[in-house]
Design a protein around this nucleic acid. Structure first.
Lengths: 125, 125
DNA sequence: TCAGTAATAGGAACCATTACCATTATTATG
DNA sequence: CATAATAATGGTAATGGTTCCTATTACTGA
């Protein structure tokens, strides 16, 4: 069973209050201000626990560094290829294509992931 | 300018003749049979060179291990969450959503990437 | 043919993430 | 409340994919 530790609580609290999609490193830096001797392993361990329990989603759509967000209704993302930041997109999610692909391939399609790429406003200058 | 080496040729030849989306490790194992003392660094260096020159595409949609394929017309992928294999999907690519998202966000949208997830035929048993 | 230099092999370095382990802290239960 | 069982922690070592470094090799244009 899962216990409520101040480390886990602090991580969740931060994720609940940000719209950014922080990396483990960013989360570490932020939570370190509250719990100075927290270890990075604790960050990763908790992010994994929270992912398993469905409270957090990991976005590792491209490249090596994973980003995390509080679990929410299925939605799409935009990633800036310059600065790496990730933004939520409020385009309606089309679940019907999953069935269509399932039918045409014979695969069991559980979900799909759609990510737009380009330059965010800041990086267009 | 790019030179034609037997290492580069062997990598390209393999990619041209497979429909799988091999990892650098798999490519290494295969090409090693032809050029036994090839180094893994050469595999990665060439894959990057070929990516820069537009001959090869790197798929690093999820997780840490990249997969590669010969560049082809824009298309979508299915990734089996059990065995990790990647398959091409012949669903038509909808470029119009890029413009729609660009309009609603103010971002410059260059491309989008769509990946289906689930279980391939083999892993459904 | 040959000089200039891109590419190579091999191994070290890098870096995000995970594993390990002795210690600490949470929590169910009596 | 006391306590025992064990989940979680901090610190650090290990892992593994990928890149970097360097002396050497081998393409290629002239």
């Amino acid at each position: 069973m899962h216990r409520e530790t101040k480390q886990r609580t602090a991580i969740l609290k931060y994720l609940n209050n940000t719209k950014s999609h922080p990396t483990a490193d960013i989360i570490y830096d932020v939570v370190k201000k509250i719990i100075p001797n927290i270890s990075k392993g604790t960050i990763y361990r908790n992010l994994n626990v929270l992912k398993e329990s469905g409270q957090v989603t990991r976005l590792n759509i491209k490249g090596t560094v994973s980003r995390y967000e509080i679990k929410q209704a299925s939605h799409y993302h935009f990633r800036c290829e310059q600065c790496g930041r990730v933004f939520d997109i409020d385009e309606p999610v089309d679940k019907s294509i999953d069935e269509r692909v399932a039918k045409s391939t014979g695969f069991k399609v559980i979900r799909h992931q759609l990510e737009f790429r380009g330059l965010c406003k800041d990086c267009q200058r």
